[in-house]
């Protein structure tokens, strides 16, 4: 029952198999981004290119609303401690 169906032995294999692919990254502070994964390390520091970052902003008030800000960056270093989740593109 090791690695179940997809032949993954350790969690970082998931990331290694996503190199050069577009990944979804969920970050602390209600931020998400997608970008092409170029490099990573054991801290989950990431190098991403062609990045679109989505920032959810909660507006306090009588009726709390959420607005979304987006921005694009060509090349980005993401510090690992901000990473919550990384999802590779769905493999078929």
């Amino acid at each position: 029952m090791d690695g179940s169906s997809s032949g993954i032995q350790e969690p970082f294999d998931l990331i290694r198999l996503s190199l050069s692919e577009r990944v979804f990254v969920k970050l602390r502070g209600d931020r998400e981004m997608t970008g092409i994964l170029h490099a990573y390390d054991g801290h989950m520091n990431l190098i991403l290119s062609d990045v679109e970052e989505t920032i959810m902003i909660v507006n306090e008030g009588e009726q709390a609303t959420v607005s979304v800000a987006k921005r694009k960056m060509d090349m980005l270093f993401v510090r690992g401690d901000g990473v919550i989740l990384v999802s590779p593109p769905s493999r078929t």
């Binding site: 997809s6 969690p11 970082f12 998931l14 990331i15 979804f24 989950m44 690992g80 401690d81 990473v83 919550i84 989740l85 990384v86 999802s87 590779p88 769905s90 493999r91």
Partner: peptide, 11 residues
């Protein structure tokens, strides 16, 4: 929903 997901352990 994610087909695969890596969750960083500190969370």
């Amino acid at each position: 929903r994610y087909g695969d997901a890596f969750i960083r352990g500190n969370n």
